[in-house]
């Protein structure tokens, strides 16, 4: 996204999926657009640009956050992780990805990267994650899905928590 107003740019140093990146961007550039259109990390999706749907969720400094509600200029020195970084270098799916596959927890797949990033963050930070149906639904309640009715996502989260070596 080649913004034309070069007179007013901001320079930030970032790490994206472990790689150092120096970005010289228009200050109004959203992280979601930067990831998708400049770094071509198109796994991060945009669904509402209001922070409600959760499709654009990435990790900023280890915590799930909405890339559509973050300007690149705010992120000097930050580490960003996107869905493309979840699978191992050998191509092995992350335990949460695997659980989604096993439980038919995705249909159109558009909301899926956001769910994955939210859930991975939840599992990484929550010391005693609640495995009840209600507890899991609470944990994923910041992400909208129009296809699955959530039931299989709940099953996938449970399987991922039980199966992850935490």
């Amino acid at each position: 996204m080649a913004l034309t107003d070069a007179s007013n740019t901001v320079n930030v140093e970032l790490k994206v999926n472990g790689k150092a990146v120096n970005a010289d961007v228009d200050p109004r550039l959203l992280l979601s657009d930067y990831l998708r259109h400049e770094l071509r990390l198109t796994g991060t999706h945009v669904g509402c640009e209001q922070g409600v749907c959760g499709c654009c969720t990435v990790h900023i400094d280890g915590h799930p956050a909405r890339s559509c509600l973050t300007l690149v200029g705010q992120l000097d020195g930050s580490e960003i992780r996107t869905v493309e970084d979840l699978a191992g270098a050998d191509g092995q799916l992350h335990v949460v990805q695997e659980a989604f596959h096993n439980n038919h927890a995705l249909q159109c797949g558009f909301c899926t990267p956001g769910f994955l990033m939210s859930i991975v963050g939840h599992i990484e930070h929550e010391e005693n994650p609640d495995l009840s149906d209600e507890g899991i639904r609470d944990a994923i309640s910041g992400n909208l899905c129009r296809c699955t009715g959530y039931q299989n996502i709940v099953s996938a989260v449970r399987e991922a928590i039980e199966g992850s070596d935490r």
Binding site: E49, Q50, L69
Partner: peptide, 25 residues
Amino acid sequence: LAGGQSLIPTMNFRLAQPDVVIDLS
């Protein structure tokens, strides 16, 4: 601009069109 979680939605919708954004990050 602190966390931006209230401000940026209003800017994305162009409900807020400030002249100057002061980033506190």
